[in-house]
């Protein structure tokens, strides 16, 4: 039995389809990444899986429990970190954990022990009795991670746990998650905008766009699946007519995108294409003003499968993150 099984899961808000007949399975013990731009439907999907929002159609099982018919079984076996930071700012770290442990009905002694271990695990022991409003964003996230694990769930859902954190805190959060996963035998389902994170930490990644599954595989295989193992970004002082065609016919070029004087080439063999490109430039008397060669990243995978840049998508008007989230006009 997979940890999470999703079948044709759909959520409509009026005419708008936020999650469109998604099907996939998350295996036990893996870190499963959901990658997608703002408004892709990641949070909606997680909310359905965590019983917060009823699906319009389709079905899903979490830890074997149907998310509609056995919602309480689901709730008992999952830990959830919502996208918004939801710890109580006025209470201390320990009080926050205590309240949640009580909500899960954990008796006093195990509760005390679990909280102590968790605070240690997320490096917050020295701040146990400080009010959360004094915490930095990274500390708050770590506290929420502890909160989500207080009842020792099998499956852990995190909605953008690192958004808004500085690079150091991001790394800390991910290290923590990898360690907790190993120690506690967790299955983790996590959403993120950060391709590098997904690449390094996820066992498998699903790319979601407009509520649909665009691709699903391990980061390595995803990267291998798109044309070109290297990306060349090159710009020229001025380009003669037909230059684009010249570039396209360079050895090993798989794909070419042009924007004024800047070109982006996907190549199966970066070094060979680079050498050929420099030669072509010299013989055509064209000056190369900049050149970079990168290996394929998940960004490229994303662009390939969704047909647009994640960065563009990120600049789309921010949608309401939660129907409950305070709207600031």
């Amino acid at each position: 039995m997979s940890a999470v099984e999703v079948e044709h899961l759909t959520k409509r808000f009026g005419d708008f389809c936020a999650v469109d007949a998604l099907s996939f399975a998350v295996e036990r013990g893996e870190i499963f990444g959901l990658l997608g731009p703002n408004g892709a439907g990641k949070s909606t999907l997680i909310r359905m899986l965590t019983t917060l929002v009823p699906p319009t159609s389709g079905s899903a099982r979490v830890n074997g429990f149907d998310i509609v018919r056995a919602a309480n079984g689901v709730r008992q076996s999952i830990g959830v970190i919502p996208q918004a930071m939801t710890s109580d700012l006025e209470l201390s770290a320990e009080e926050n954990l205590n309240i949640f442990a009580k909500l899960y009905g954990i008796p006093r002694e195990p509760r005390r022990r679990a909280i102590k271990t968790l605070l240690q695990a997320v490096d917050l022991e020295p701040w146990a009795d400080k009010p959360v409003k004094m915490f930095s964003g990274g500390m708050r996230r770590r506290l929420e991670i502890a909160r989500g694990l207080v009842h020792e769930p099998n499956i852990f859902f995190l909605d953008e746990p690192t958004t808004g954190l500085d690079p150091v805190s991001r790394v800390a959060v991910w290290d923590m998650l990898s360690r907790l996963k190993r120690e506690r035998d967790l299955t983790i389902l996590v959403t993120t905008h950060y391709m590098d994170e997904a690449d390094k930490l996820c066992d498998r990644v699903a790319i979601v766009d407009h509520g649909k599954l665009a691709a699903l595989d391990s980061p390595l295989k995803l990267k291998a699946s798109i044309p070109g193992r290297n990306i060349l970004e090159v710009s020229f002082s001025k380009v003669p007519a037909g230059w684009e065609n010249t570039l396209r016919t360079l050895p090993d070029v798989a794909e070419l995108k042009a924007e004024d004087h800047v070109f982006r080439l996907a190549s199966h063999n970066g070094p060979r294409t680079t050498v050929a490109l420099m030669e072509a430039a010299r013989s055509a008397n064209v000056t190369v003003t900049s050149l970079s060669v990168q290996s394929t990243t998940l960004d490229d995978v994303f662009v390939h499968y969704t047909g647009h840049q994640l960065r563009d998508a990120l600049q789309a008007p921010a949608t309401a993150e939660s129907p409950y989230l305070m709207k600031r006009h």
Binding site: P82, T86, L103
Partner: peptide
């Protein structure tokens, strides 16, 4: 409340 609602 979202935090409450995901508990049993």
């Amino acid at each position: 409340h979202e935090g409450y609602l995901v508990t049993p």
